[in-house]
Design a binder for these strands. Structure first.
Lengths: 243, 243
DNA sequence: CCCCGGTTCCAACAAAAGTTAAGGACGCCT
DNA sequence: AGGCGTCCTTAACTTTTGTTGGAACCGGGG
């Protein structure tokens, strides 16, 4: 049954930021999930749509974004397996942004109704999910700082390290390299710069022997320089449930 | 009793985004709140601190911000009376940013413990507060877009209009003008530009007869041009509880 | 196998924003 | 009234980023 692996990924991730009781795990494991495959570069939910489900990433990468009147697009966050990128739609039914796949992905859908019922039955689970949406917001805050205050090379390094720290938790970092399946166009949209400038910045970091980004994969060349450039403090990820 | 006016402001605001039952209003009115006065430009909670209370703005303006290693500061949001800017601390106990006053302010503090108990008693109230934190996140998303994709003059106009729409709800817009008590330094920190450039942009909008910002007060000179420049779509404020 | 479309890469030029430096306005305190 | 400090204002100059246009690369489909 494919749903099982999905549920396991979710539970593993929730454990990182909250402490869960066994009965609650059972409840989550019993959640009805309908699975669906998506090709790369496809909209899952669109800005303005009314959502009735939340979507759990079983496999693949997703991104959230907003497009303004001038046609420019801003990527707001990247999402990896085990995450529920549109949990917010549970109470904000009309989407205020897009959710789309970056790579081919398999997604599990859980209806809002099911989740609401679970929350009434198990307030602790509700709090866990609430906390998850709060971490989501914390990541947005850091993203604002990144786009607003850091020079472009540091912005790129920071996004890379954030992604790496999250991938590490699900065992998806392979030595000095990990996946970041964005085109340079999309890197630009994430950093608030043009694709041309994204290319310049990527090249600069390569030439300085700090980090390489090639075909959707990041390879760190000099960890010390990389960390120093990124100015990364992972506290905002709130990965410790004890605090 | 000073607490009453505070509670009333909170309830009025919650009503905008959620439908509330009478019993729930009674519960909120019964919440123990300890009131405290703050001078302008003072930290309320600091990045890294452990919070045990949430803070309700009774009067005055506040802002949330983060400071990076290089010393640069990014303002993340502005807050007005009736709001609870650090509701997120309820489940993210260690602050990942600063909350400080912009003007002299009177703040009401509600302990996390009290709120948790209320949530267990009244899950609907918990959902209301949850929804509030989700709207907070929606505002962060729009802030990312603003800083990442809009040219500086549009950024300024957008922040102004967002603030105006929120002030309007609490009856704080006076014809074509409203309060925005930021120094030009702070305007720069909000928009992700330097104070010098903030000055340039403010002057430009004044010279073009669009909007005037003087001594912490915005006066709109040409509403049509102002709206057009800002590219504002208020959907992200999620002000309709019916949707 | 080659062609095609989307990336990646690059250079030259234009525009936006940052830096530095300095004078002016204004409120506040004595 | 005078002095002081903060904010605002402006100019000249530098750096970063955007724009335009084009060449090279690469993978998939005919």
């Amino acid at each position: 049954m494919p749903g099982d692996a999905i549920r396991a990924a979710l539970i593993r991730r929730l454990r990182i930021s909250s402490a869960i009781a066994d009965e609650d795990i059972k409840e989550i494991e019993a959640l009805p999930i309908s699975v669906r495959e998506y090709p790369a570069e496809t909209a899952v939910v669109r800005d303005g749509e009314r959502a009735t489900n939340c979507c759990l990433i079983a496999d693949g990468f997703c991104a959230r974004s907003k497009t303004i009147a001038s046609g420019k697009r801003q990527i707001l966050s990247l999402h990896i397996p085990g995450e529920i990128p549109d949990l917010m739609s549970l109470f904000l039914h009309v989407m205020d942004h897009d959710l789309s796949t970056l790579t081919a992905a398999t997604l599990g859908f859980i209806s809002h109704e099911t989740l609401q019922k679970l929350h009434r039955r198990r307030p602790v689970v509700a709090e866990m999910f609430w906390r998850d949406t709060l971490i989501d917001a914390a990541m947005f805050r850091e993203w604002i700082v990144n786009v607003g205050q850091r020079p472009a090379p540091a912005r790129l390094a920071h996004v890379m390290i954030e992604l790496r720290e999250r991938l590490r938790i699900i065992g998806r970092v392979d030595g000095t390299s990990f996946e970041m399946p964005l085109t340079q166009e999309q890197v630009g949209e994430a950093l608030g710069i043009t694709a041309v400038h994204a290319n310049r910045v990527i090249r600069q970091l390569r030439e300085e022997g700090i980090v390489e980004l090639h075909r959707g994969r990041v390879t760190v060349l000099d960890e010390r320089k990389f960390l120093e450039l990124a100015d990364f403090d992972g506290r905002y990820l709130h990965q410790s449930p004890t605090l």
